[in-house]
């Protein structure tokens, strides 16, 4: 579980996050949505420690990350998996080397043990027989799956995904969404996803946080999102005619 309390962060005098508080539960897919510039990426990067918050706390299963010793921080890092927007695969390494990298760095496993684990996670993300290919030889969807495999190879307790569907066709996007949700439930990971994709919101959003101008504007499940009368959320989420119709039919059915 991740508990965020009154998180604030700014750059050069401009406050980007203005006191965000929320809780993310394990085994659930938590989505952060909002317009561009709302502070989603800064929020996510603050959670994973790439940005130092100016004030506020982030507790990972009761452990405050601001009070971590160097050793605790190293330990905590190994409990975190991250899927970056552009996959961030090491382009000089093969798929196998990419996924094996955290194991090489942080475990004392033999080559055979590491290879077995790599093959297991690659199989889990439906990427068999791609071990010796380089990231440049893979499609966007395959790269995302390798990034997910690398993120889960250390059995993380927390999984963070920054726009995992960006640049993917709708079919592949659903495959990636479902994969993340399955993994989250299967391994009881606390997953936080930063997304613009409203399909993802409808499909896998068990908890959704809507950010606006660095403030948490709204919080709830995808079902609650259908019912909400928060105008900002409604105008953002249901901006397309398709989603307006989907919402209307949902509201008609539940009347």
């Amino acid at each position: 579980m991740i508990e965020v309390k009154n998180l604030r962060k700014g750059f050069r005098g401009v406050e980007v996050l203005k006191g965000i508080s929320t809780t993310f539960h394990p085994g659930k897919t938590n989505l952060i949505i909002g317009q561009s510039g709302a502070g989603k990426t800064v929020f996510l990067k603050s959670l994973i420690g790439l940005h130092e918050p100016e004030s506020g706390t982030i507790a990972f299963d009761g452990r405050l990350n601001t009070k971590f010793s160097a050793k605790e921080k190293r330990q905590w890092r190994q409990e975190v998996g991250m899927v970056f927007q552009g996959s961030a695969l090491f382009d000089s390494q093969t798929v196998e080397e990419n996924v094996m990298f955290p194991l090489k760095m942080f475990t004392n496993q033999t080559q055979a043990e590491m290879l077995a684990r790599v093959n297991f996670v690659l199989d889990r993300v439906n990427l068999k027989d791609s071990n010796q290919r380089f990231p440049a030889e893979l499609s966007g969807g395959m790269q995302k799956r390798v990034a997910i495999a690398r993120a889960i190879v250390m059995n993380p307790k927390y999984l963070f995904c920054d726009e995992p569907n960006s640049g993917l066709d709708p079919q592949t996007a659903i495959v990636i969404d479902n994969l993340i949700q399955e993994i989250t439930e299967e391994y009881q990971i606390t997953t936080v996803i930063n997304t613009h994709d409203m399909n993802s919101v409808m499909e896998i959003g068990e908890k959704i946080i809507f950010l606006k101008d660095g403030i948490k504007e709204w919080e709830g499940s995808s079902e609650e999102m259908f019912k909400t009368d928060n105008e900002t959320v409604v105008s953002f989420v249901y901006s397309s005619n398709l989603f307006k119709k989907v919402r209307q039919s949902y509201l008609n059915e539940t009347k």
Binding site: I48, G49, L50, K73, R74, W76, R77, Q78, V80, M82, F84, Q85, G86, A88, L89, F90, D91, F101, P102, M105, F106
Partner: peptide
């Protein structure tokens, strides 16, 4: 290139 494609961030996140 590693910096702009977030590969360095990926290393940092791994600790």
């Amino acid at each position: 290139t590693m910096r702009v494609t977030e590969q360095i961030d990926a290393l940092e996140v791994m600790g």
